[in-house]
Design a protein around this nucleic acid. Structure first.
Lengths: 189, 189
DNA sequence: GCTGTTTGCCTAAAGCCTTTAGGAAACTGC
DNA sequence: GCAGTTTCCTAAAGGCTTTAGGCAAACAGC
């Protein structure tokens, strides 16, 4: 009987695809095993347990999102950078809803500290630095920005804006404009 | 053997308490049965299935939140109303994290339409009406407000702002001030 | 108070998921 | 080719969900 060639990476990648297809909380060790046509117990040579699988998917999602953000931010500043970062979040969530949900999985302190999550906060700060806010305003602004991005994206994903008239794209741009305006007005200079 | 006196209401209430104690996704038909010292199958005379239980908990949470919001909004307008509504959300989420998570459960169209969710959107619109925004700005503002509230509350709950220096209370007030300022500046007149 | 019906809770059982233990086959390097 | 390690397997126990069918408690109405 030939081996299936399982590796942690392949398992996690399959788990991420599964998450996008059926939802992150439907991701199960069994389902991933099924996808490789392999017995469930076999995965336990590669993964500690179900939570380990989910955590690794979360870390993958955070990496991907951070990579895209870094790429989108390159060479941009001000409103341009704000919109670029925001669009990366929104587009990623729409293209990969399961992975996006995974990225919201609460991680324990050490795991979080070693994750791409720190790159995310650094990038948000970088975007806001463009507005020249003094502390502690900058921290407040990071929290506001994080709230708006996560809030909007998750409400839209959950269908919260589904059957209302103005297109969500229009609201999105309106919100980014307001955000930019507010941050600019806070700027000293 | 005397009867346990199960009713849908008692089961849902127990499920909501359980959610607050151990998390909404740990709420299980089995766990609720255990809490009543009753066999699992017995609950199926009262509940259709596990999803039915979760949906009812979600509806309960939406009701409670709407009731508190209505109470807090009575007699207030402008920034006062905005802060009152926002504080209700935040306080509820911190006091009842499991219920708050339940309130985010995606509901199917008919259930959502019959839920207290419609009261929520009406109240948000009422708060914003105080700023006299023309359409379609008002709709955009509803979406922004919803995003900020949900985003901030869920990030704070997930511990996203846990070990950063400025107190979250300060950021919260700062954000409400900015929001109020932005909305006021949009107001015609 | 008795009888008949309804209802509520039970036992039993099947299906799926998780996780551990231990075995055998497939690779690896010498 | 052989020893050692790794990978995948079978087996098994425990938990959650859900359905089917049964008995007894609660409740009618007389």
């Amino acid at each position: 009987m030939p081996r299936a060639g399982l590796t942690v990476e392949r398992l996690v990648r399959a788990g991420a695809e599964l998450a996008d297809e059926v939802g992150f909380d439907q991701v199960t060790v069994s389902a991933v095993a099924r996808r490789f046509d392999v017995k469930v117990a076999s995965l336990y040579s590669h993964l500690k347990n179900s939570h380990d699988l989910k955590t690794r998917i979360a870390l993958l999602a955070l990496e991907e999102l951070a990579d895209r953000s870094a790429h989108a931010l390159a060479g941009r500043a001000g409103r341009d950078a704000l919109a670029a970062l925001a669009d990366v979040y929104r587009d990623y969530a729409r293209a990969h809803p399961g992975r996006y949900a995974a990225a919201r999985l609460p991680l324990d302190a050490e795991t979080a500290a070693a994750s791409a999550g720190v790159r995310h906060s650094r990038m948000m700060r970088a975007v806001l630095r463009g507005y020249g806010l003094p502390e502690p305003d900058q921290t407040h602004a990071v929290r506001l920005l994080g709230s708006v991005l996560h809030g909007y994206v998750s409400l839209e994903l959950a269908g919260g804006f589904a059957h209302s008239s103005p297109d969500t794209q229009v609201s999105w741009e309106w919100i980014l404009d307001r955000l930019d305006g507010m941050l600019s007005s806070l700027s000293p200079h």
